[in-house]
Computed example of a mutant assay.
Amino acid sequence: MQRYSRIHPAASPILTRFISASAENGAAVRKNRFIACLVALNFLGGIVWAAETPETVLIRQVLSTERSGHRRGNTDVAIQAYADHVVVYEGHHSADPRGWTIIRENRAALARALAADFEHRRYDLNRTVLFILARNDKAIVATQDSGLVIDQRSGTSQSFDMYRLWTFTKDDDHWRAVSVFQNIADTTAVAPAPAASVTDIAAILEREAEAWQNKDIGAIMAAVDEDFVAYDAYHLMDRTKWRIAFSDAEEFEDWLRKRLTYANYTIDRRVIYTNLGENGLTALALTEETVSVSHEKGSAIHSMKRYVFWGLSRRSGDWKITQLLANLPIPRGIEE
């Protein structure tokens, strides 16, 4: 599979992009030069879109099969697109994760929901694949479905329109969806701002922040799932600009061991929203945090405020971080 090149560690997308922010007491000139340096690094060693590859073709085939299952009302066909541990999130027509909820916690639950739905409804759908970004054995995909939903009894129909953001993993040469975010819009004005409610999830994320400050790589890695994946939104609503930063735990650990030899982190993290799946197997969280970094050979401290989406699962017994999406656009109503 064609890969895009990685950004130099000095401008790593998830955990060091904030270095481009100036130190609070730094001079404006120094800030501008530093940002210019990072921009150069992004252009010279950064990420570029790949053309259609055999892997993206395979992902399109999976999406086509899933759509065919909906059109035929066949659960067995539609469910082939999903991994056993797939999680489905409902966005409630907002880009603000404070309004998102978990509606399906695994493949079995999704299959039951599809079967019940197909008993009463028939789907005449068209699907447009908006973009595919594949890196190693992970991918991000966006689709737009449109068409009609027909009631099986009355024959009446109504229009159907749904945006979905999918994350895929490749296992044994098969691409499968591991998460689906449906009905996430391009506005953050809709969602409410509930307080964090799952205290054990908040505690896990707070300990993870402390581990960064202590340079405790073992504790950081103990918090993540072996199939962990990290994405960077670059503070942009345009999801075609989002990128995969780390495609598994091994890659993440390799980067940590190099990075923490010369960089010091302080993370001021506040958990502002959590949601637990119906059976308590999965959870999501949104954190507001200020990340500050300094280097062993320098005195400057660079800081950046960011919002991070976290997906967690305890399918292995203990809660583990399965995915994170850093640098989300700042939700309305949270800004200071």
Results as ranks from 00 to 15, higher is better:
Y4S: 15
P13T: 12
R33F: 11
A36W: 02
V39D: 14
F43R: 10
G45S: 11
G45P: 03
I47F: 14
A51F: 07
E55D: 15
L63D: 03
E66L: 05
R67V: 08
V77H: 01
V77R: 07
Q80L: 14
Y82G: 01
A83E: 07
A83S: 11
A83G: 12
Y89N: 07
E90V: 00
H92M: 08
H93G: 02
W100Y: 06
R104C: 12
E105D: 07
E105C: 03
D117G: 01
Y123V: 05
R127L: 12
T128S: 07
V129K: 08
I132W: 00
I132P: 00
N136I: 02
D137T: 11
D145A: 01
S146C: 08
L148V: 05
I150Y: 02
G155R: 06
S157N: 09
D161S: 14
M162D: 12
Y163N: 08
T167V: 05
F168M: 15
D173M: 07
W175T: 05
V190K: 13
T199A: 15
I201V: 15
L205H: 03
E208Y: 11
E208Q: 11
N214V: 04
K215I: 05
K215Y: 01
D216F: 09
M221G: 03
A230P: 02
A230S: 14
D232S: 15
R239T: 11
I244W: 07
F246G: 02
D248V: 04
E250W: 04
E251T: 10
D254C: 08
K258Y: 13
A263D: 10
T266C: 03
I267R: 10
D268K: 08
N275W: 06
N275L: 00
L276A: 04
N279G: 14
G280Q: 10
A285D: 04
L286E: 09
T290P: 02
A300D: 13
A300S: 10
S303Y: 05
Y307W: 12
V308T: 15
V308M: 06
W310G: 04
G311I: 04
R315I: 13
G317Q: 03
W319L: 09
A326T: 08
L328C: 04
L328I: 01
I334N: 09
